[in-house]
Nucleic acid binder design. Sequence first.
DNA 1: AAAAAAATGAGGAAAATCACCCAATTTTTG
DNA 2: CAAAAATTGGGTGATTTTCCTCATTTTTTT
Lengths: 214, 214
Amino acid sequence: MTTPNKKTQIFIVDDHKLFRDGLKFILQESGDIEVVGEASDGKEFLDLLNYIVPDIVLMDISMPGMNGVEASKIALERYPHLKILVLSMFGDDAYYNSMIDIGVKGFILKDCDANELKDAIKTVLNGKSYFSQELLLKLIRDKNATPAIKLSRREREVLEYICRGYSTMQISEALHISHRTVERHRASLLEKTNSSNSISLAIYAIKNNLVHLE
Amino acid sequence: MTTPNKKTQIFIVDDHKLFRDGLKFILQESGDIEVVGEASDGKEFLDLLNYIVPDIVLMDISMPGMNGVEASKIALERYPHLKILVLSMFGDDAYYNSMIDIGVKGFILKDCDANELKDAIKTVLNGKSYFSQELLLKLIRDKNATPAIKLSRREREVLEYICRGYSTMQISEALHISHRTVERHRASLLEKTNSSNSISLAIYAIKNNLVHLE
DNA sequence: AAAAAAATGAGGAAAATCACCCAATTTTTG
DNA sequence: CAAAAATTGGGTGATTTTCCTCATTTTTTT
């Protein structure tokens, strides 16, 4: 009897079952990878993490409910050595910085091919970081074009309400703060996003995936 | 020599290679389906359509460049009998109406499982329509909630400018009309879309595809 | 040609936004 | 712990939006 090689244990977090299933096919075909868990959003992932701690997590960013950024943050607080490989897509630009700050191990574009994905997994497994070349290029380009904006938690919340059409008063009531504070946050948002009015701000937020249209 | 059954020819349009590859695995596993083409956006799809006309097109909606709505529209103008099955996801609600108007043959959620997808393909192949149950429910609910609205040419123009962040003054200058007239049109827009302010109006417009970002 | 819809423009007033100014407290981070 | 960032909230005032009202002209439809 031979000692079987331990397979690399992968956990997939993505809101589309079809995508997860396809990914499973691709990964398991290679033989040395095993998909040990999957979740359709951040919350579900964190729950399952109590029972399964995989070698590598393939994490989507934009999901309904708890998104990939928050989920990664919490997961890495609980398991600092968790290796998270972010499956990024067009429009996720705004999240790169925070994801790097949080401590994910790599980014790879969803339109890479299977081999690159496997390479990335192998690299991350060996303790190194993996950032897809296209993404790096893009980051550098964007960095020069528009300096990265970073929103605070509260600003993000206020932005969310603004984009839902709430008035300043309504937001202040929803968040239990003064309407002056809401105005302050909005002013910061306008400045940070270089918007001339709240409508531009809302559009900016949507374009850059800072908020999600239901 | 046996006459081989002709396989169902599928074309996949989605901006993520990984997703397309996974889908190929899933579909080709069943044996009677053959993926004859793929494209990562609408433009590429339309180009390839000159060389390959598949039995069924699996079409993603949101893609960079030309999205699924426009691509389907043009494709169906050229090939009215083309069977397009839309791969819909969370957040695509606003496009359902236009897609149905355009004449796609069905909708299926990206988080369905492989069997439902194969069912859908089989159904559409037989000339019938396939709409995922979850989606149908949603559509009916929305339809009753908001009757279709009709905007005049000028209203649409003003809406376009509003969504680009123009102020009333700037719009009046751009269209060479009084700022009072712009206000009038905006008031009509607010009323017709049942929006409480211009931000809601802009969001509504984007959601319902009345204007296009960039 | 008549009727309906769309586009035009305005007065006046209330409400909201926006742009400046300022500073105290709390939280996060080095 | 000290520094930095975030959150909080206020004053003032200009500007803009929003909500009513109304009326004239142009275009489209029947």
